[in-house]
Write a protein that binds this DNA or RNA. Sequence first.
DNA 1: TAGCTAATGTTATTTACTTCACATAATATA
DNA 2: TATATTATGTGAAGTAAATAACATTAGCTA
Lengths: 213, 213
Amino acid sequence: MKTLRVPEATVTRLSIYSRYLERLDRNGVSSVSSGEIADGVGVSPAQVRKDLAYFGEFGTRGVGYNVKDLMRYTLKILGLDRHWNLILVGAGNLGYALCTYRGFNMRGFSIVGVFDNDLTKIGKRINDLEVLPMESMPEIVKDHNVRIGIIATPTRAAQEVADYMIKCGMQAILNFAPLPLNLPEHVEVRNVDLSVKLEILTFNLGFKSAQNV
Amino acid sequence: MKTLRVPEATVTRLSIYSRYLERLDRNGVSSVSSGEIADGVGVSPAQVRKDLAYFGEFGTRGVGYNVKDLMRYTLKILGLDRHWNLILVGAGNLGYALCTYRGFNMRGFSIVGVFDNDLTKIGKRINDLEVLPMESMPEIVKDHNVRIGIIATPTRAAQEVADYMIKCGMQAILNFAPLPLNLPEHVEVRNVDLSVKLEILTFNLGFKSAQNV
DNA sequence: TAGCTAATGTTATTTACTTCACATAATATA
DNA sequence: TATATTATGTGAAGTAAATAACATTAGCTA
């Protein structure tokens, strides 16, 4: 098996292919071509094949791909052939929304601990979880073998929370605070910035208007 | 002024520089170099200068950039030198979180209409807004001159909602449903997929584990 | 005012990513 | 069984983006 560096764009698309394949499978589709996948998710057929080629050969020439098989392969590649327990810090509205977000469960993620340092929030329930004080993090992490943490705090708290998460053993962090975190190399971080995409839209709208003038 | 095509990655970074500059400005910093911006947001100094070069010359050789000026320029480039009214469909937990999200207001965005087709949700209040039925959309859009819509519905409703938004005149859509939308060319769409980034993390954790074995 | 230092703006280089094009292989058909 | 058709997998070509390198210019110092 090849060990080329895999572009992050490829991993992103793989995640999208994977979900598209789940949908096909639910709809009873058993076979699919790179062209159909491409149409379904809005990329080129060559792109689909190239992306898959980083990880092996999954199709049959002249035929296409078996939906169930390819779905399982993509899930496995993404590390989703297993269950992942997560912790989340920040029991505000965003934290609440993330805890109740179905999309995570559907992909094998479970939030097993919600933390906050606000005394008015500690003890409240979200689904079947109680919001806990930060000091409880090490215990939860140990009990549930947690490696990934989600930050849904106000911006000002994010860096401190990230540092504490790492002290508690987190190996990866998903950060919703609009602030670049400063973390050691061995920790994987990805940011979800809710307003950046919105600003790409305003940029493009502005650009269009300018061209019409 | 050059009219090269601007890479989307550049626009994304511009949004991040812009917020970083706002922070510097709030902290009373008046001058900054490309190297300092680079350190602050985690890119290379050359990248910062290259990104800015798409839009003009904003610095002084040997000196650096005036923070307030560059902040204003970046905001203007992104189309954020004005106010943007938004509508949102889907008054669930995610919709609620987005309506109350400070990050939008801080960048000049206001959600002026929240819609749902669920009768149990219509009439409820979010901040100072009442959740309205879908039929009210055209009126709100007209009254507030809205061009951008946010989709925070369950996946199954997203495509239909997007179509209706466009009928109501939306020119751009920010889609939180994990589904590629099928829309006419002239409509700008960006997806915020909450679990894709999480799956990049699990991919990377899996990859690391594999390499250690 | 001449020389030094610092940091921009920009060209050249390198690297990364995407698309193209086609050889290969599987199935269907006559 | 030969032929036509379809769609994969992949090397080559093309495009785009990031990095490096440097010429330029502002400000400082003696």
